[in-house]
């Protein structure tokens, strides 16, 4: 996760309090999703950015996770995410959801 983004998120966490923030990702590369979620939950694994050794414990979700989908009116979700759901496929969505759930519970 880029150093600039780490800095921005850290500042937002200081301003609003980490417990008041929620992060929603729209990346489809599983490794990249994992890196962002880990960095924003437990700190920068590469120890190079502002979040090195800083566990913000932000709640990180993916927009395609069922937990998120359930909170969004069906019509809007289909309109915005319909194509992404088809191209991503249920298998990958399940994998990403499981991974993020585990990271959130750490």
């Amino acid at each position: 996760m880029s150093l600039e983004y780490q800095k921005s998120v850290k500042e937002l966490a200081e301003k609003y309090g980490p417990e008041n923030l929620v992060v929603v990702l729209g990346f489809l590369d599983e490794e990249l999703v994992e890196i962002y979620a880990t960095t924003l939950t437990l700190g920068d694994p590469s120890y190079s950015g502002s979040l090195a050794g800083v566990a913000l414990r932000l709640k990180v979700y993916h927009i395609l996770e069922p937990e998120v989908k359930d909170q969004i009116p069906e019509v809007v979700y289909q309109e915005q995410m319909g194509l992404a759901e088809i191209t991503t496929g249920q298998e990958k969505i399940k994998k990403i959801s499981k991974m993020l759930k585990e990271i959130r519970e750490k």
């Binding site: 983004y5 998120v9 937002l12 609003y16 008041n20 923030l21 929620v22 992060v23 929603v24 990702l25 729209g26 990346f27 489809l28 590369d29 962002y36 932000l58 709640k59 979700y61 927009i63 395609l64 937990e67 998120v68 909170q71 969004i72 009116p73 809007v76 979700y77 309109e79 915005q80 995410m81 992404a84």
Partner: peptide
């Protein structure tokens, strides 16, 4: 989980753009 929270969004042009995620969150 979404309501009463401040949201941070990371999207990507060829995957899911930030603006699309914004629309979903606003609808929620």
């Amino acid at each position: 989980m979404l309501k009463e929270k401040k949201a941070i969004i990371f999207g990507e042009r060829d995957e899911i753009p930030g603006l699309s995620i914004e629309e979903c969150l606003k609808a929620a």
